[in-house]
Design a protein around this nucleic acid. Structure first.
Lengths: 93, 93
DNA sequence: TTAATAAGGTTTATAATATAAACCAAATTT
DNA sequence: AAATTTGGTTTATATTATAAACCTTATTAA
């Protein structure tokens, strides 16, 4: 049986990647709300995805407040697509 | 976003359930080979699925050797189907 | 006939992962 | 100027996954 990329086979990281597959970019606050995660957990998981090169994380400012913006990279997109293919063999779809 | 049943969102347990969805029953040795898992890991994960009522585990004898046979229950089947539906919302399929 | 090896597992210890709680700095409100 | 909010990060803890060690019975080899 195919291996399921463990970096993507995690609910929160998968949710983040799934969101980023469908938008140009998304900021920390948006991802936190959409995934209903805590800030701490999200912060850690974004770091992991970023370290793997699956997303790029830009820390900037929006007016006077910090703003962290994330977008998927082509490596991330590829990994996600491979993950979906592997998963399909488990789900019989 | 929908929750992914954590009992099924684990590579080895998902593989086991996936196999059991397609056969009447499967024994320990077969599952071990098909999933390429270690016996210890498989034993633990079968226990979890069994405790949750997702599979039934029969410990019998095949001639003079022990033989553990597993099959999916209707609860397991239902949980798997719900899991697949939830996952689809993540995968955009 | 008993020592070694294999088959089929289980138990337990360890490594990895996920999660939440505590914390921090700057801005805003009271 | 104290308290609260925003937007996070770091660190400690709980959970999970995994492998290593072990157990019992059966078989084979010496």
């Amino acid at each position: 049986m195919k291996e399921l990329n463990p970096l993507l086979h995690s609910q929160l990281r998968l949710a983040v990647i799934s969101i980023l597959m469908n938008v140009e970019e998304a900021d920390f606050v948006y991802l936190k709300e959409k995934t209903e995660s805590t800030a701490g957990n999200l912060s850690v998981q974004l770091d992991k995805l970023s370290s793997a090169g699956y997303i790029s994380v830009e820390k900037g400012m929006s007016g006077k407040r910090p703003r962290t913006t994330c977008s998927i990279t082509s490596d991330g997109r590829k990994a996600f697509e491979e993950y979906v293919e592997a998963l399909k063999t488990y789900l019989n779809i």
